[in-house]
Design a protein around this nucleic acid. Structure first.
Lengths: 406, 406
DNA sequence: TCCTTTTATTTAGTGTCTAAATTTATGTTC
DNA sequence: GAACATAAATTTAGACACTAAATAAAAGGA
């Protein structure tokens, strides 16, 4: 069991990959472009391209005289064939299933979302699986693609997943998501299924399409009902021994530092408490006189209107977040911490307090930003995860509508 | 700028490396052994071995009839040539310089240690460099090796170092160690110099020769006057954006959680305090009546003799360590946390309390152990760092006493 | 039409591997 | 000791993948 390369064909595979890496991400390439970017000779580059076209990953464009007068023999133009297949990104929440279908450049071709019917927490595995499959099928239908087009499926779940994609038992919600997605379900569809923690996928998403582009060291706090962090160091996700890395929610440190609860739950909790104490606040108006069912939204709205009680709640939340971020910053030294999740939009209000608190808590406060990616963040990360898999294994996968090629 | 492989020679280089990886770590190999371990054919394996012998990294042993009667043509026997060069591991402390010389299997051939003359904190760069060089030369002399035998130098420093081996400015002690070791000093000796944080090297050492062998996810708390952690996830050191990962000392969280100070300093501090308060304790006897200069050793010794005040101090230290370990465990999910450093031996006394405290602080308490490596831990890690470099670059380096080979 | 430019393609040569045949150096058996 | 068995090394032939250099193709411009 060691790093072995044997046949000369390994060389070709390496070069196939090198050329694909250059081509991917759009734009057309000429042989000369590829020579420059890969360092290979023209003969090799063309041979590799022909190989890729034959395999279906690349298409050759008809030589179009493109504007500017060009001397010399026209170059053959190649482009990555983003339609050689698609990937699926799933966000399995406690109550909702979200699916995205994307082509191999990551362009979203279809979306679907469904609630788990009935009481989500009590749903059986069968009901859950049924919902997942039908959501996937709807998204594929919208994209106009058959199940055979799917090259990989990335799935985000709200529990601990180790680095091999196995759900770690004994954790909160672990039973709920341990549905045999990798092996049993979709066995007939033969999809490679990649499970990952939702906060980790949020981190992939921020680095791919969010505010963390170009950042190799970051933490994304995915907050809502729960609180979890996705950690990327040197461009790689951190999992820890059992996938528990970033599970800041399980930290029960001295009062106030630990926080099993996300921003939304804290806002609701403390808002409800304020009402129960009969305090004078706009939250009462927003909730209505009849009930005490505070939602996070009401607290943030009241705060936006300068309500003192709501502002105090936000202040408490921000201080708690600052503490968690300070610890993250000290232990991992990320370049950037992103606050993401259901309440990200409202979280902008927390930034001033957080940034004000941080210097007192750590010598090297990280930059803190709020995510702009919105609801689809986990599904987007799941798409990225699936794309990573496909890109890594392209040479051994068979693209859509192509016979197997050796 | 992309992953490129071109000539068929790349294949050979990969296979050279594969064969070396099998051979390294002692023992002799026959062609058949290598065939099995690398998956290459006999013809290739022999060709690669001949190549390695020619380059000087491998030596062929005289065919010795080894005990058991062997049918067939005797196999040629090859062994990694651990004397093809050596590496240097340095531990630059605030007041002391420690050097180890090791062969390419990591066997220590020479050691030396020297104190920085005069007041260490006030020593000039010139004095410091002089001490370093003379310590190195002594160690080489003991090993009986010329400076030309050195293939790489690993250096541990007690400050923040980023993943490229650059000392991050603006940190505690950063100026003290930023001596131009990589470029200016030893320019004439042309050694590759690899700088790394001391706690990180302690982590490498524990994984190589210590209690963490076979562990891919671990944290090593290097504690003494300072407190720093070396973090390994999935077998790789974590640095963070600026190398600050693991600098738990800079954490100024709510009372008691932060800890700029290591175990030794806390023991001294709290011991001194107890004396100042005039409490009845064995520490007084150990220190002597004349003075109040408590050292950590006295506190631990008093505790070993069941002194109530000393035991209370140990309890406080253990609780503080438990908090830091709990945070580490929660954020990074290591398999193992090792307590190392000057006070490691005494730290055994802390284990019961730490293990008792942990479950209340985190849902997933890591295993906690005490290092057995002793004083040389950082230098050992530095040797490992240098070996890693040499092993990675073996194909492009020139071993001792060999002409350059292409 | 001829020249220049840029690119593609072909050809010859080299390095590396595998697979199969051959040789070598031993032990075993009669 | 000759014949046989065995395990390993070595040689040979063939397959690939690459480079480098020569050749061919497809344009624009004088």
């Amino acid at each position: 069991m060691s790093i072995t390369a044997n046949t000369p064909q390994v060389l070709r595979r390496t070069n196939l990959k090198a050329v694909l890496d250059v081509m991917r991400g759009g734009g057309t390439c000429t042989g000369s472009d590829l020579m420059e970017r890969t360092g290979l000779t023209r003969a090799t580059v063309i041979a590799v391209c022909d190989d890729l076209v034959r395999r279906g990953w690349v298409r050759e464009l008809v030589a179009e005289r493109n504007g500017a007068a060009q001397k010399g023999r026209p170059a053959r133009r190649f482009a990555f064939n983003e339609e050689a297949g698609c990937v699926l990104g799933l966000d399995l929440g406690v109550a909702t299933v979200t699916a995205q279908v994307a082509d191999l450049n990551g362009n979203v071709l279809g979306r679907a979302a469904q609630r788990i019917p009935g009481k989500a927490l009590e749903a059986t595995a069968a009901v859950r699986l049924e919902t997942i499959t039908s959501t996937v099928d709807r998204a594929l239908q919208e994209a106009g693609l058959p199940t055979t087009a799917v090259l990989a499926v990335g799935i985000g779940v709200a529990t601990v997943v180790d680095r091999h994609g196995n759900i770690a038992g004994g954790h909160q919600l672990s039973a709920m998501f341990d549905l045999g997605l990798q092996t049993e379900v979709w066995r007939d569809r033969a999809w490679p299924v990649l499970l990952e923690n939702d906060a980790n996928l949020a981190a992939l998403a921020e680095r791919w399409r969010g505010i963390a582009q170009g950042t190799d060291d970051l933490a994304v706090m995915l907050t809502g009902e729960r609180l979890g962090a996705g950690l990327i160091e040197s461009g790689r996700l951190l999992h820890g021994r059992n996938g528990g890395a970033g599970e800041v929610g399980t930290l029960q440190l001295v009062a106030g530092v630990g926080s099993r609860d996300g921003i939304a739950r804290l806002a609701r909790q403390w808002g409800t408490q304020a009402l129960a104490e009969g305090r004078q606040t706009l939250i009462r108006e927003l909730v209505g006189p009849e009930t005490n069912r505070v939602s996070a939204r009401f607290v943030f709205e009241a705060a936006a209107r300068e309500d003192a009680v709501a502002l105090e709640i936000l202040d408490r939340i921000a201080r708690r977040m600052a503490r968690v971020i300070a610890v993250l910053g000290t232990f991992l030294d990320p370049e950037l911490v992103v606050i993401a999740g259901a309440v990200a939009k409202s979280a902008v209000a927390l930034l001033p307090t957080i940034n004000q608190e941080l210097p007192a808590l750590t010598d090297t406060p990280p930059r803190v930003e709020v995510s702009q990616l919105g609801d689809g963040i986990v599904a987007t990360g799941a798409v990225r995860l699936a794309l990573d898999y496909v890109e890594e294994n392209m040479v051994s996968l068979t693209p859509l509508g192509q016979p197997a090629v050796t």
